[in-house]
Amino acid sequence: MTTPPSSEATITSTYIKHGDHVDTIESVDMVFKAQRKLSFTYGAIFFAVTLALPLLGVTSEWWWKTEIMGGFTWDYLIVSLLYYIFLWTMAWTYSKRADKLDDTLADLADKVTHDVAATAHDEG
C-alpha cells in the first residue's frame, strides 16, 4: 500500500501554502464573500419559508382550519409532506452551486498564485 503524500503546510500571518497551492488573505476574502453571499441567500429563503408556516398557523384561518382534501388542511399538507420537497430542492441546488463556486474560486485562487509567481519570476 502506498502512503499518500502529506500536506506540509507553510503558515504565516499573510499566507498559507499547501504544496504549490497558496491562500492569501486577499484570495480568502474573495472566497469568503462569494460563499457568504450564497449561504446567506439560501439561509434567508429557508428561514423565511420555515417561519412563515407557524406564522400562517397563528394568523390565517384558511391555512389551519379549512380542509382542502380529505382531512388535510393547507397547514397539515405542507408540514407533513410538501415541506420535504422544499428542503430537498434547497439542499440539492445549494450543494451544486457551492461545488461550482468552489471550482471557480479554486481556479481563481490558482490563477492568482500563478500570476504572483510569474510576476516574482519576471522581477527576479
Binding site: A9, G19, F32
Partner: peptide, 15 residues
C-alpha cells in the same frame, strides 16, 4: 488572519 484563512481558504482542498 491566519485563522480566517484556515476557515475559508481552499488551498488545502486544492492540494
Amino acid at each position: 488572519d491566519e485563522i480566517w484563512m484556515r476557515i475559508h481558504g481552499n488551498a488545502h482542498e486544492r492540494w
